[in-house]
Design a protein around this nucleic acid. Structure first.
Lengths: 253, 253
DNA sequence: ACGCATTCTTGATCCAGATCAAATGGCAGA
DNA sequence: TCTGCCATTTGATCTGGATCAAGAATGCGT
């Protein structure tokens, strides 16, 4: 490759190897050469805005998407008009893995705030993984990780009460933001109370009341969408099974 | 390969290419040659019995398991002693995919009734998929499918009431058994009411009462663990969002 | 066959969180 | 800046399903 090749600043800024998410995203653990090869098939789209769709339920599956900046929610239609929020996706997180099976998207992905998204055409990725064992392994890990996260969510919805659910949600955000070099205790929520409730299987009112209560209890400071977590350990103990000895649905089988 | 090679009856009976599950299991859609290669790494263990563990939470991840006959439940420890049943696995279904990511099992798998299980050492499978594109694709599809199933379950736990959950559970079993050539409307439950309730996020008592009610309504006939579904369409309409116009939590976001 | 333990069923009561209702507060668009 | 629509909060009430409490039915080991 010619050393005189003209490279736009833009392309340098967005290449995987120069991306700050490299340790969280698909390239995680890959050799520089492998990242280079991956880089060649990744498309970087112009920024998308709140309300834009990455894809909709029913769309043909063509590519995986990775959040580069911003945030995205995915949601599936429930029977008769409702919807279930499936997840909120932060930078470095991959969207669309569930569509590989049927080759059709079963959920929709909607941009929550102005975001940059990387697009990875799946067929090309599949070809690449077939010749790059480390990338293949990485794909298996990512798919498996998604399953593990869903499992955590099943446990949350199946066994936890409202308080535990919201605490778990806040801590999850906190931890994920922290991994991305942001403050684990001071952040903005890009989703509405309604979306949080839907995601957690709770009514909006319950979410609102819990925010108020957590604030009264000195666990956090809520100002509109701006959140400050004041007592991480206390939140953690809330999540860990009904905290200070409250009765709890216990099901041994 | 010599045509005089001695092959034990046993090995013939259990080889993937001779297995009746070939169209539901990993080999689905593979060429005969690819199945042959897969066959070489699959280990077939002696039958396991009710209560035996395939693996336990915390075990090192070594292999995927496929139910050949019988049934298996997977479950994860909840905080403080409880557990969440994650799934009931029928012949042809793969267990352990969630452990690829961390290389450790996050859930346990317990045999529900005398079962034959195929074991597929993962490292060898991974090597094989790297040189067998169709098998690699099949793996991606299987992992993706698992995500899709978890998604369905999230919707169930997040949005459906007790009646809808049990109806969905029964229909899921019905459909899966049907695909395996068994009756979709007459079968035995290998799991307890307690396990069903745990899986569906309901108390045992609720499950029991619903069985009684469904029977009273002529939807099914329950005799201990023997189930007969008498009105599949009615069950389907129950699942599809609160059936005959009952109030329902609807959350648009 | 008998006795004990476990699972399942059924009834009564309770409560976390949904639903209903209304006030308040932001923010977007003109 | 004003207007009107949402999003959010807060309060009051209702209810599905959990929890508590017995029985009844099974199954199992001896």
């Amino acid at each position: 490759m010619s050393q005189f090749k003209v490279i736009s600043l833009e392309s340098i800024r967005v290449a995987c190897k120069n991306c700050t998410l490299t340790s969280l995203c698909l390239p995680m653990g890959l050799s520089p050469e492998d990242v280079e090869r991956l880089d060649e098939i990744v498309k970087r789209a112009r920024p998308l805005h709140r309300g834009d769709y990455l894809f909709r339920e029913g769309d043909r599956f063509r590519a995986l998407y990775v959040v580069k900046t911003g945030s995205v929610k995915t949601f599936a239609p429930s029977s008769e008009g409702g919807e279930q929020v499936l997840g909120f996706h932060l930078p470095g997180e991959i969207i669309g893995l569930d569509a590989i099976d049927k080759d059709v998207h079963a959920c929709s992905a909607k941009i929550l705030e102005t975001s940059a998204i990387c697009e990875i055409p799946f067929t090309r990725l599949e070809d690449l993984t077939a010749t790059t064992p480390s990338l293949q392994h990485q794909m298996y890990r990512l798919l498996s990780k998604e399953i593990g996260q869903d499992t955590d969510m099943l446990l949350l919805l199946g066994k936890k009460n409202a308080e535990e659910r919201l605490a778990a949600f806040l801590l999850s955000l906190s931890q994920r933001l922290h991994k991305r070099g942001l403050s684990p205790s001071d952040f903005y929520l890009s989703m509405s109370r309604h979306e949080i409730g839907n995601y957690l299987g709770l009514a909006v009112e319950t979410v609102s009341r819990l925010f108020t209560r957590f604030q009264e209890d000195g666990l956090m400071c809520v100002d509109r969408k701006h959140i400050q977590l004041l007592n991480l350990p206390a939140l953690e103990s809330l999540v860990g099974g009904s905290g200070q000895g409250r009765r709890q649905q216990q099901q041994q089988t």
